[in-house]
Design a protein around this nucleic acid. Structure first.
Lengths: 137, 137
DNA sequence: CCCGAATGTTAGCCAAGGCTAACTTTCAGT
DNA sequence: ACTGAAAGTTAGCCTTGGCTAACATTCGGG
C-alpha cells in the first residue's frame, strides 16, 4: 500500500527532544524548586556541554529561559508543552500497565511511545483505562 | 523519580531509520520483485540524494546490497530485521485497531510506535488481541 | 539506433544532537 | 577571605539525515 505517513508522523509534535526536556525540567522544578544543568545531566546522561547546547536551542525556540550560571525555568509555552507531555506520558504508562506490562518496561516504553501517540489513540487509551476494551468489530 | 531510561530507550533497536528502510525495501520487493531508489523516494518522500545517502549507510552497515544503477536488495541480516520490524509493526497496528483507533490513525501511529515497543509490551499486545485485557490489578 | 525522460550519483551545504578538552564561575568549608 | 571542587561555558569536532544543483547513466519509443 505504500504509505506516506512519515512527514506527518514526525511533524505533529515539536521535536521529541524538546518535549523530553521541558518535561524533565518541569519535573525537577516540581521536585526541587529549581532546575540546574546538572539535574539534566543526571536525567539524560549526556555531558554538560550537550545540555548547554540543547538548552540554548530550547531558549532560542522560546520554551525555556536561563542566563549564564543561573537556573533554568520554563516559559508559558514551555510549561504548556510540559503539562501536555506529562499528561500524555502518564496515560501511556498507565495504559501499558493496564495491558499487563511491568512497571519497569512501562516506564521505558512510555518514554518512547508518548511522542507518537495521536489524539485519537490517546483518547482510545483513556477509554480503555476507564471502561475496558471496546466491543470487537 | 528521575529515570535513566534514555540510553536504553534508544539503543535496543538499531536506528529507526534502518528499520523503516529495510521494512520498506522488503515491502517493495514483495510487491514488485525488485526495489529501486525511486520506490523509496516515493515511500519516504525525500529526495533521490537523501535515499542514495541513506542506502549507502545501510550498505555500510551490512543491511542491504546494491551497486550503482542497480536495484537494492537485502542481506540476510537486512531480511531478518525487516521481518522482525514488519511483524512488530503489524501487531502494533492491529492492536491500535482493537482498542478503537481508526484505520488511518492506526497506520500513522504504528509507524512511530513500533520502534519503541519492548518484547514484553509486544507480548502484552498480542495477548490482548488474543484474549482481551488481563484482569485488573 | 538514438535521444529525451526517468533514474541515479556526486558535491557541497545545513541543523540537530552528540562528544572531548580547556577554560571560567560559583560556592562551601576551613 | 581563600581556595578547591562542583557547575557551567566555549571551541572544535563528529555523524545522521535532510536539502539543492549539476552531472551521469539507463532505457523505452519512435
Amino acid at each position: 500500500m505504500v504509505q506516506k505517513n512519515f512527514r506527518r508522523t514526525r511533524s505533529d509534535h515539536a521535536s521529541e527532544v524538546a518535549e523530553d526536556y521541558v518535561e524533565a525540567i518541569a519535573g525537577v522544578i516540581a521536585e526541587k524548586g529549581v532546575c540546574r544543568s546538572v539535574d539534566l545531566v543526571a536525567h539524560f546522561e549526556v555531558t554538560h556541554a550537550t545540555i548547554n547546547n540543547t538548552v540554548g536551542r530550547l531558549q532560542r525556540d522560546g520554551l525555556v529561559v536561563t542566563e549564564p550560571y543561573q537556573p533554568i525555568s520554563l516559559t508559558v509555552r514551555g510549561e504548556r508543552l510540559a503539562a501536555k507531555s506529562q499528561a500524555r506520558h502518564e496515560v501511556v504508562r498507565d495504559f501499558l500497565r493496564r495491558i499487563g506490562v511491568s512497571e519497569a518496561n512501562a516506564a521505558i516504553d512510555s518514554e518512547g511511545i508518548e511522542h507518537h501517540v495521536s489524539r485519537e489513540t490517546l483518547r482510545a487509551m483513556r477509554q480503555v483505562l476507564k471502561d475496558g476494551l471496546p466491543p470487537e468489530h
